[in-house]
């Protein structure tokens, strides 16, 4: 019984952290979908109105920065879980 508890604690402290790091990397999923939609819409907008390309680019980059933030948070969490925990 004691051995089991030790093993479980060991698992949660080391391999559990690695598992969590893997799960945290799933944030890339949402960010990827969001950035893909944003880029596609920007391409559509540029095709429809090529003279507004400057404004569209500014807004696109700003939106991409916001979408990218969640992915960066996930990456930070997984890096911290692997190397610090």
């Amino acid at each position: 019984m004691e051995l089991l508890v030790t093993m479980l604690a060991n698992f949660l402290a080391t391999d559990g952290a690695l598992l969590g790091a893997g799960i945290a990397a799933l944030t890339g999923l949402g960010a990827g979908i969001g950035m893909g939609i944003a880029t596609g819409k920007a391409v559509e907008a540029t095709a429809r109105q090529p003279e507004a390309v400057g404004k569209i680019r500014t807004m696109l980059l700003l939106g991409l920065a916001f979408a990218e933030t969640t992915a960066i948070y996930g990456l930070l969490v997984s890096i911290l879980l692997i190397f610090v925990a």
Binding site: M7, N10, F11, T14, D15, A17, L18, I79, L80, I82, F83, V84
Partner: peptide
């Protein structure tokens, strides 16, 4: 149930990476 993470960091190639996080 071995602990893979300690093995991963034990291959002293990646040990240097740990010091560079902070």
């Amino acid at each position: 149930m071995g602990d893979f993470s300690s093995q991963l960091l034990a291959t002293d190639k990646f040990a240097g990476l740990k010091d560079k996080i902070f």
